[in-house]
């Protein structure tokens, strides 16, 4: 019952604070525009409609983590900084209740935002192409929710470990740069390759480098999307030469993306929880 007490109070306060409403509307508008500008290469409407979701995945990969971070980074740090936590813990709640209640509330909020964005994009797609590519739409929504949750989990974890707002910002924004921006430009694999080939002087191993890229939820999201795309839409996410593509090891298969998500959902939360349990709240 006490998780419920934290959860419902937090949800009310997020809903009323209004800060996320603007973000939600903007995101939905951008998603709808994306679906609209997906101009045809004279493909059949169903294919076009499916492509619209492919384009959406590209957008979401970069934007949804930002939304998840904005929605979650102050979840627990805010209560600590303002002294709200003194009341949460003055009543029969434990630190675990606070942690779980906050996590569930923010997961719910971000899920609702993602869902709203999908409704907007789907409405535009259906209006424009006259078809509803149900398989791709539902599949992309599912992997997008997983992707969004990893960033909510990471942000709540950072928030539970950070005593001040600036620490929480540093931790979450830092994570975003490393996990998303870094993988948009050059990738982990390039650093690993440098160390592996040049510094250590070992035989080149492109699959190993790719495995490091795969550790990023951003890359995992692109790979997970392949799971729900029709074969024609599947993309090769790793930057391989032809010969490396032929003999892909099992650990680089699309299914492994789910393992990557699971790790990002569990490990930061576990660490954040342990730190929060041990910290002095005052």
């Amino acid at each position: 019952m006490s998780v419920e007490s934290i959860f419902s109070k937090d949800l009310t306060s997020v809903r009323r604070s209004g800060a996320l409403w603007g973000v939600t509307v903007c995101l939905a508008l951008v998603a709808a525009m994306m679906a609209y500008v997906n101009v045809g290469r004279a493909a059949p409407p169903l294919r076009e409609a499916q492509n619209a979701y492919g384009l959406l995945v590209g957008l979401i990969g970069v934007l949804v983590p930002i939304v998840a971070i904005i929605a979650s980074y102050m979840s627990i740090t805010g209560e600590r900084a303002s002294g709200g936590i003194k009341f949460l813990l003055a009543f029969p709640n434990t630190r675990r209740d606070v942690f779980v209640g906050k996590l569930l509330s923010r997961l719910g909020v971000v899920s609702a935002i993602v869902l709203f964005m999908f409704v907007a994009a789907t409405a535009m797609t259906v209006a424009r192409y006259g078809v509803f590519p149900a398989g791709v739409a539902v599949g992309v929504l599912a992997v997008t929710l997983l992707y969004a949750w990893t960033f909510v989990a990471l942000s709540v974890a950072c928030s539970s470990a950070a005593a001040t707002r600036s620490q929480a910002i540093a931790a979450t924004v830092g994570s975003y740069f490393v996990l998303v921006i870094l993988n948009l430009t050059f990738r982990f694999s390039q650093v690993v390759q440098l160390v592996h080939d040049v510094i250590l002087g070992l035989e080149p191993d492109p699959h190993l480098y790719a495995a490091f890229d795969y550790a990023s939820p951003y890359i995992a999201y692109q790979k997970a999307a392949n799971l729900v795309y029709p074969t024609a839409m599947e993309r090769n996410v790793f930057r391989f030469r032809e010969e490396a593509r032929e003999s892909m090891p099992a650990y680089l298969s699309d299914e492994v993306s789910l393992v990557v998500f699971a790790a990002w959902l569990v490990i930061p939360l576990a660490l954040g929880y342990l730190l929060f349990q041990r910290s002095d709240l005052q």
Binding site: G78, E79, G84, F87
Partner: peptide, 13 residues
């Protein structure tokens, strides 16, 4: 029953 020190009524309630 607790009246703590350094509390905050920060939620929009």
């Amino acid at each position: 029953g607790v009246l703590p020190e350094g509390y905050g009524f920060d939620d929009p309630l």
